[in-house]
Design a protein around this nucleic acid. Structure first.
Length: 859
RNA sequence: GCCCGCUUGAUGGAAUUGGUAGACAUAACGGACUUAAAAUCCGUAGCCUUCGGGCGUGCCGGUUCGAGUCCGGCAGCGGGCACCA
């Protein structure tokens, strides 16, 4: 009995079971395991140094899936690693003088031990870190294979250049047109860079989305929009007084009669050529180049243009001259970098036309609107309608007019039907130190020469300094000096490194054979484990990481590495963790643990007692200090409590509000279960005792709920409705706590119920699960115990409660035998006093009977 | 700017295909236990009410016997936009 008086020692129990799992290698994945494979993967973390709540949520979700699938009889692969290259390591080096390698490796060690304290069922023997040559040597080889397969090329591309730091800036490092650290005005620069031909797979990546039926619809839609397939027309405009022509891509060839100008991007060859002899234009181009490279910056900027003085001749409208502008909203990377503007039917064109006093001619009349009365005000009309003011296109609907316009231009020999994608090739060159070296040698005679395979890996030198601006690889005294592998002459190594998305585009495959030294992974292992059955991570990766990984998988297939096209068969995108924000009287942010909530609800600063103003709940971020450190929570409440809270209240794809009350609630449940089992233990029959012949009504009812709960929780877990699963388990717990265990039947049903609760909660609170399972008298580990079985006879109900409505409003409920006949149900419903009162003696006009569900009497 | 998502009690959320709105929890209140507190246990609870009932799922309108769920419009909040990962 002393067991009930003891408190559950969270720290001791969690350490104990972690050691047991570790010792027995409970989570080792083996290819020779005959059970059906299940590969569950969470997005691996950037080793920032400490885990944050987002990680706790992500990895808890994955662990529940992994443990559940294991219990369901799968051979589970559940690995973990480190996305270890990236900018923060270099920032730390510049700010604190720590070497990125040291900083990163120490961070990995710290985070590994934090993750281990969560009791996650990883096969740690498969751990990888992308910053180690054992990992990145293989991606250098992959790059060279892609090169051979014609999937890599080199071209000039624009970057944000910080003239003080002599570095390329990421978009997020450009703030209001200035470098974040230096404050210098950012310039755009053209650099020669490596590109991967993701556009070669544009159509395939789009088509493949249809097969991803276990992906969230919105992610597929985001990718579809990102790829941005459009059908249209490429056509040439003759330029007055010049021999060359202007090539334009349009998805609206139907609106050619409404054209009032042409515009080219600031980087368009025509613009650049003309800027040489036009200082005004040169200044405008320079200004556009300062705008930053992000699409958001371009689109939100005021539409501006510079008239070149040139005129283009509209190929559709004989003799019509259109002024040619250089405009800041035309993108060189999309289509041909040149457009024609039809202001009446495109908002950007309209804004532009209004600003520069260009004509606005409507050529599409909304359905049912008199052509004569079509007027364009401040809003362009981009919807369907009927062509007007358009010569031989008049009267046609938009779709037919598009087709006819294309036919006309093709017949005239000035245009061709074309499919265009918004998707651009992936620039993978980064002018940074802490990344995977690109295995290329530049020779004055032979050009860009691949590093021979036997010379891989090209190791990142660690003897570098960060005291000078620019790329440390560039400053290194010897590293880049090599002989050309082809001609032997003195040559230079490529000093750019890969985009870190490169590493994360194939790590899921590396986990299949992480120890393989000759290549990234073996074909056998990839064929066995891929695709990932369930991938889990943040929605912020909905487009880039996931699209790059899908592209890589196709490219790797092309090169014979693997046989699948889609890397992730199932995808779960989890929401963010939010927390209330606090500011002190001076408007400075405060950490939650600096704030005290008094009994009257007022918030004050801990210690000083000064008033604190409460802000709404926002995504946890260091800048707003609304963060809670998981390490402290795990230390105080244990991993199981943190895990349960992560699963309890919000569905995984939704944002989750971190609250002290929520974590308290989870902790209370943990202790309640512990006490319940302890209290019941002396009364329970031995494990495996056969069902007594008669149980009694309370025990029978409890059994029914136990088996119903197994069924419901199973369904909920399959669909990732973890919060509902928790609610069902708590309901069963509530029932069991009221079940009298004095008689044989009650005690038997209580054991079955408690064992069920322990087994169902196991994937969520694995340490408590093991502890209670062992206390209930089982020698085998809970992780090696299969999911509980359902007795289907206990799921059958013989009567149902049916709602009775009058005119759609609830007036009462009746108890009916299951699948009762409609006539009988109707009679029972009409016999209800509340129904009779509503009818007031008149016969009902109609009675709708939905079997086992509802009866609606229409008065 | 473009694309996407979300909005249900004081709070997080639940509600098969349209079929009893508010499961489960949190906070609150009342009670038991305690010298007291904590913990624990039991109970109450959408709002209004003349106790018949009426009103309630961001707002306005529609479809339907019946709408949180479907359709149209509007508002608020959040995410992504190619060099953060």
């Amino acid at each position: 009995m002393s067991r009930t008086d003891e408190r559950y020692n969270v720290r001791e129990a969690e350490a104990k079971w972690q050691a047991v799992w570790d010792e027995r290698q409970s989570f080792r994945a083996r290819e020779d395991d005959p059970r059906p494979k299940y590969y569950v993967l969470e997005m691996f973390p950037y080793p920032s140094g400490r885990i944050h709540m987002g990680h706790v949520r992500n990895y808890t979700l994955g662990d529940v899936v992994a443990r559940y699938k294991r219990a369901r009889g799968h051979a589970v692969l559940h690995p973990m690693g480190w996305d270890a290259f990236g900018l923060p390591a270099e920032n730390a080096a510049i700010q604190n003088g720590v070497h990125p390698a040291k900083w990163t490796r120490e961070n990995i060690a710290a985070m590994r031990s934090q993750l281990k304290s969560m009791g996650l069922s990883y096969d740690w023997s498969r751990e990888v870190a992308t910053c180690e040559p054992e990992y990145y040597r293989h991606e250098q080889k992959i790059f060279l294979d892609f090169l051979k397969a014609g999937l890599v090329y080199r071209k000039e591309s624009w970057v944000n250049w910080d003239p003080v730091e002599h570095t390329v800036l990421a978009n997020e490092q450009v703030i209001d047109g200035r470098g974040w650290r230096s404050g210098a005005l950012v310039e755009k620069r053209l650099l020669s860079q490596w590109f991967l031909k993701i556009t070669a797979f544009a159509e395939d990546l789009l088509k493949g989305l249809e097969t991803l039926d276990r992906w969230p619809e919105r992610v597929r839609l985001m990718q579809e929009n990102w790829i941005g397939r459009s059908e249209g027309l490429r056509l040439f405009f003759d330029l007055e007084g010049r021999k060359d022509r202007l090539e334009v891509y349009t998805t609206r060839p139907d609106t050619l009669f409404g054209a009032s100008f042409c515009a080219v991007a600031a980087n368009h060859p025509l613009a650049e050529a003309m800027a040489k002899s036009d200082p005004g234009l040169a200044a405008f181009v320079a200004e556009c180049n300062r705008m930053g490279t992000s699409e958001a910056a371009l689109e939100t900027a005021e539409k501006r243009g510079f008239a070149t003085g040139l005129h283009a001749l509209n190929p559709m409208v004989e003799g019509q001259r259109l002024p040619v502008y250089v405009a800041n909203f035309v993108l060189m990377d999309y289509g041909t970098g040149a457009i024609f503007g039809c202001p009446a039917h495109d908002q950007r064109d309209l804004d532009f036309a209004r600003k520069y006093g260009l004509p606005v001619t409507p050529v599409v009349a909304p359905p049912g609107v008199d052509p004569a009365s079509v007027v364009i005000g401040d809003e362009a009309y981009a919807e369907d309608g009927v062509m007007i003011n358009s010569g031989l296109l008049n009267g046609l609907p938009v779709a037919a007019a598009k087709a006819k316009a294309i036919d006309l231009m093709e017949a005239k020999g000035v245009g061709t039907r074309a499919i265009n994608y918004r998707l651009r090739d992936w620039g993978v060159s980064r002018q940074r130190y802490w990344g995977c070296p690109i295995p290329i040698i530049h020779c004055d005679r032979c050009g860009a020469v691949p590093v021979p395979e036997q010379d891989l890996p090209v190791r990142l030198p660690e003897d570098v300094t960060f005291d000078k601006p620019g790329n440390p690889l560039d400053h290194h005294p010897t590293w880049k000096q090599v002989a050309c592998p082809q001609c032997g002459a003195a040559a230079r190594r490529e000093t750019d490194t890969f985009d870190t998305f490169f590493e994360s585009s194939w790590y899921f495959a590396r986990f299949c054979s992480p120890a393989e030294t000759t290549r990234g992974f073996t074909r056998n292992a990839a064929d066995h484990w891929l695709p990932v059955d369930q991938y889990i991570g943040g929605i912020e990766h909905a487009v880039l990481h996931l699209l790059y990984s899908r592209f890589f998988t196709r490219a790797l297939k092309t090169c014979g590495y693997l046989g699948v096209e889609e890397p992730f068969a199932g995808l779960l995108t989890q929401g963010m963790i939010c927390h209330e924000t606090y500011k002190d009287a001076d408007g400075h942010w405060l950490f939650p643990d600096q704030v005290d909530r008094r009994a009257d609800g007022a918030a004050v600063e801990l210690g000083s007692g000064r008033p604190v103003s409460l802000g709404r709940s926002e995504k946890m971020s260091k800048s707003k200090k609304n963060v809670v450190d998981p390490a402290g929570i795990i230390d105080t409440y244990g991993a199981d409590t943190a895990r349960l809270f992560m699963l309890s209240d919000s569905p995984p794809e939704r944002d989750l509000d971190w609250t002290e009350a929520g974590i308290d609630g989870a902790f209370r449940y943990l202790n309640r279960l512990w006490r319940m089992v302890g209290t019941a233990l002396p009364d329970l029959p031995a494990p495996g005792t056969p069902t007594p012949p008669s149980l009694g009504p309370a025990a029978d009812k409890a059994r029914r709920q136990t088996h119903k709960t197994i069924a419901l929780v199973g369904e909920d877990l399959e669909r990732f409705h973890f919060n509902k699963a928790v609610a069902r388990i708590r309901e069963l717990t509530n029932t069991l706590s009221e079940l009298p265990a004095g008689d044989e039947g009650g005690a038997w049903a209580l054991r079955e119920g408690l064992e069920t609760v322990v087994r169902l909660i196991g994937p969520m609170m694995p340490h408590l699960g093991e502890e209670l399972w062992s206390q209930l008298g089982h020698a085998a580990l809970l992780v090696d115990t299969p999911w509980p079985e359902i007795d289907p006879t206990l799921l059958v109900e013989d009567s149902v409660t049916v709602a009775v409505q009058v005119n759609g409003k609830l007036r009462g409920t009746i108890e009916l035998p299951k699948d009762a006949e409609a006539k009988m149900a109707e009679a029972a419903a009409l016999a209800l006093p509340a129904v009779a009162q509503q009818l007031a003696g008149k016969p009902p006009r109609k009675v709708i009977v939905v079997p086992n569900r509802i009866i609606n009497v229409v008065a």
